[in-house]
């Protein structure tokens, strides 16, 4: 088999894995948009905030310690504990639920019946607030995140493919774990939305707020639940991306990777986020591999958007999005 074809296969597999990581971010957007029609600009910052909180809790960091020390002249930084990863994840999830409640209570309850653009702008404000809040709460230094996930080359795949092709494929163990977790997450979310009372209520709210309200569904509860779910997805994305690069403020920029995925997969479809992520991941990696060297490289960022725009021309609602027909 020609070398270039073997390399392309490796790039293809890595593209799939990268796509899963993009999809993890996109899922959070989909959940909130589906249930409340809000395009949550703050989803990337939520991933950052969740990861910061997770590291802070795990390492026993005192929140707002810089502020406390500056105000009271104290020197407290740590509680002196190191919590197990699972306990820390559960506690972080509790914080994200609290955040979901606060966001709805303090922001969106006051914006009921407002135009989507107003709600979008509110999420921009929320993003900037949370970025600053996270900074004050946990500090701006880069934090190592280690929840025990494996990282580095998968030797089994490396050796097997070497046996087949005389060239061992590189697949990162972390990407494999991310794929498994994303698959479980999507299946769980689909089961939740299709087969549970709360899930059906969520879908009812997504279809028609007024009708859902008239049959006794609490909009407040559903919105807090959806934002909590998005917070959970943000936490998972934060763990995966934070393990790769350390937890730092650039983590909020991963939202930029989710936008073309949403444009391609549709804003309202959970499977769409996954398929969109995979298409973007594979598309950008193969383009960079085949065309990148001819035009100077670094094509991935813009090519993802070009790919998404091409799809938009033919399917404005995205691959799996709901077609909106407005009669005038």
């Amino acid at each position: 088999m020609p070398d270039q074809l073997i390399y392309a296969m490796e790039v293809f597999l890595n593209g799939l894995m990268a796509g899963v990581l993009y999809a993890l971010v996109a899922l959070g957007f989909v959940l909130i948009y589906k249930a409340s029609g809000i395009f949550n600009y703050a989803q990337g910052v939520m991933a950052l905030f969740a990861a910061l909180t997770l590291v802070g809790i795990m390492e026993g960091q005192v929140p707002f310690s810089h502020l406390i020390n500056a105000m009271f002249g104290t020197e407290i930084h740590h509680f002196g504990w190191h919590l197990p990863a699972l306990v820390s994840i559960l506690l972080t999830m509790a914080v994200m639920v609290l955040l979901a409640w606060a966001v709805n209570k303090l922001i969106f309850n006051h914006l009921v019946n407002q135009e989507p653009i107003i709600l979008f702008m509110a999420t921009i404000g929320l993003a900037y607030f949370m970025e600053g809040f996270g900074d004050i709460m946990w500090g701006a230094d880069i934090k190592k995140l280690d929840v025990g996930l494996p990282q580095g080359i998968n030797t089994a795949i490396d050796e097997t493919t070497y046996g087949w092709f005389g060239y061992g494929f590189f697949i990162d163990n972390l990407d494999i774990v991310a794929t498994v977790i994303a698959a479980i997450l999507v299946i769980a979310l689909v089961i939740f939305s299709q087969y549970t009372k709360q899930g059906r209520a969520m879908r009812a709210v997504a279809d028609d707020h007024q009708a859902a309200l008239s049959v006794g569904i609490s909009l407040n509860f559903i919105w807090v639940m959806v934002w909590s779910l998005a917070g959970f997805v943000a936490l998972v994305a934060g763990i995966m991306w934070g393990t790769k690069s350390g937890v730092q403020f650039s983590l909020s920029l991963i939202a930029l990777k989710a936008l073309p995925v949403l444009m391609l997969g549709g804003f309202t479809s959970i499977p769409g986020a996954i398929v969109g992520g995979l298409l973007i991941g594979v598309g950008e990696k193969l383009f960079e591999f085949s065309v990148g060297p001819l035009i100077g490289g670094a094509t991935e960022n813009w090519f993802a958007y070009v790919l998404a725009l091409l799809f938009l021309v033919f399917r404005p609602q995205g691959l799996f999005g709901e077609k909106i027909i407005e009669r005038v």
């Binding site: 390399y7 490796e10 790039v11 890595n14 894995m17 990268a18 990581l21 590189f170 990162d172 991306w241 790769k244 690069s245 650039s250 983590l251 920029l253 991963i254 990777k257 990696k285 960079e288 591999f289 990148g292 100077g296 490289g297 670094a298 991935e300 960022n301």
Partner: peptide, 20 residues
């Protein structure tokens, strides 16, 4: 020459190229 676009959160392509 192997460029990495800002911010550089995802560099799989670049490092696969280096590996090759």
């Amino acid at each position: 020459l192997i460029p990495v676009d800002h911010p550089g959160q995802e560099q799989k392509s670049q490092w696969l190229q280096i590996r090759r």
